[in-house]
Simulated assay, not measured.
Amino acid sequence: MRIYIALALGLFSSHIFSAQSDFTWHGYVSQGLTQSKDSSFITDDNNVTGELTEIGLNGYYQLAENISIAGQVNYLDGGNRFEQGARLDYLFVDWKLPNLPGRWRGQIHAGRFKNIHWLYSSTRDVPQTRYTSILPQSVYNDGFRDVALGSNGILTSFSNYGKEYTWELNWSYGRSNINDSQREFLLGNEVKGKIRQDFVHQASVFLQPSSMTWKIGAGWLNSDFKYTPSQDEDGLPGTANIERFMLSAQYFAEHWEVSAEIIRDKQNSQGLFSPDFAEKRTGEGGFVQFRYLFNNEISGLIGYDKYINDTSDSDGKELEASTGGLIPAYFGYQDTYTVGLRWDIAPKWRLQGEYHWVEGATRVVSLLNRDVASHSDKHWEMWSIQLMYWF
């Protein structure tokens, strides 16, 4: 990862003062205040902090007529949600395929490419493109942000621009490195070994009319993970497979828009606790958001987000019983109500605020943590206010 960041910085710095028209670069700076109350999702001990910092620099360099390079480095501090520090969000070669038949257009990304299979997966790394600082956690789980944002591998995208409709077909295959913060989110803070993503295989399709008033899509994901314990822990080797199915929809009107996604996750885990340990579960969830534009500068948002960790135990009572009360039932689900307000106070300046009311805590922390109950009450809240500038 350090090598990738050094290469990206070298790419940016070598051209940042260049007057050549084949290189462009942009950036953003965002700072805010945030708090999670009665939960450690963002902050500890109900503290109000400034751990809401995002600084990014991205560039695009045209190597040849159909070949370019794009990349972004990012500094991120989101409290307990992320590992604080710099990271390489993406760095890939973009090859636009020439001479495709009919109305088809295609391109291939090779390197660390961005996830384009979900509604907001390709824009979640840029603060001014998000309607809220904290996206719906049913789909955009912050504990897994860096892995879900992109992968090291190859992505293909084909679009057909017909007279009435546009079709978009996407396919990708790769893997991501998993840092200590993401390992703890997946397996708990007691583990000290190495977790590896063997692969992530994704495909998606989107349909949009020429009027651009709506967009629908469907996606599929399959990924394998492997855990190797360290020599000084009691854990055992383990594997996990995750398969996700998703449906997406958006509708745009002159002064308002609505968006929604629903998901179904199938997880199959083996090992970790005993040689014969095996667990299969199916999780379901989704969100709906409504945004209204009061004028060209001010807009508001309301949203609802829900996730159930196991569809056979939607209220979490079996989870609580099976752990002898160690894990409360409300860690089996999470319901979130959101309101937000955005104000474009000047060109390239934005002030954005939001408030979330939450019942349940299945997205707060890994259910494999031994002290999971200490991480959240049943009912909790979170809020943020963030000032953004981009150039």
Rank of each mutant, 00 (worst) to 15 (best):
R2V: 02
R2E: 09
I5E: 12
A6Y: 02
A6C: 04
L7S: 11
L9N: 10
G10T: 10
S13N: 07
S13D: 00
S14M: 14
S14F: 15
S14A: 15
Q20R: 12
D22I: 00
F23M: 06
T24M: 04
G27V: 01
V29N: 07
T34Y: 05
S40R: 14
I42G: 04
I42N: 02
D45W: 08
N47H: 13
E51N: 14
L52M: 10
T53V: 12
L57W: 05
Y60F: 10
L63G: 03
I67H: 03
S68D: 14
I69E: 02
A70N: 06
A70M: 10
V73R: 01
Y75G: 02
L76H: 11
L76P: 06
A86G: 12
Y90N: 08
Y90P: 07
L91D: 01
F92V: 05
F92Q: 05
D94G: 07
W95M: 09
N99K: 07
Q107N: 05
H109C: 03
F113L: 04
F113A: 01
N115Q: 01
H117V: 13
Y120R: 06
Y120K: 08
S122C: 01
S122A: 13
Q128F: 11
I134P: 10
I134C: 06
P136M: 15
S138I: 13
S138A: 15
S138D: 13
Y140L: 13
N141L: 15
F144E: 14
V147T: 12
A148Q: 15
L149K: 02
G153I: 01
G153R: 11
I154K: 08
L155A: 09
S157Q: 14
E164W: 03
T166W: 04
L169T: 06
S176P: 06
E184Y: 03
F185K: 00
K194Q: 13
D198P: 04
H201T: 00
S204W: 01
P209V: 04
S211L: 08
K215F: 00
K215E: 05
S223N: 05
F225K: 11
T228Q: 13
P229C: 02
G235Y: 15
G235I: 03
G238W: 08
A240I: 05
N241W: 11
S248M: 13
S248P: 06
S248V: 05
E254R: 09
H255R: 14
E257W: 06
E257K: 14
I263F: 12
I263E: 03
R264N: 08
Q267W: 01
Q267Y: 03
N268T: 03
P275R: 01
K280F: 09
R281Y: 09
T282C: 04
F287K: 14
L293K: 15
S299W: 14
L301H: 10
Y307L: 08
S312M: 11
D313R: 13
E320P: 04
G325C: 07
F331E: 10
F331Q: 13
G332I: 09
Y333E: 05
G340V: 09
L341C: 12
R342H: 07
D344L: 15
I345D: 07
Q352A: 08
E354D: 15
G360M: 10
T362E: 04
R363S: 12
R363N: 14
L367C: 01
H375I: 02
K378D: 11
H379G: 00
I385N: 00
I385W: 02
M388H: 04
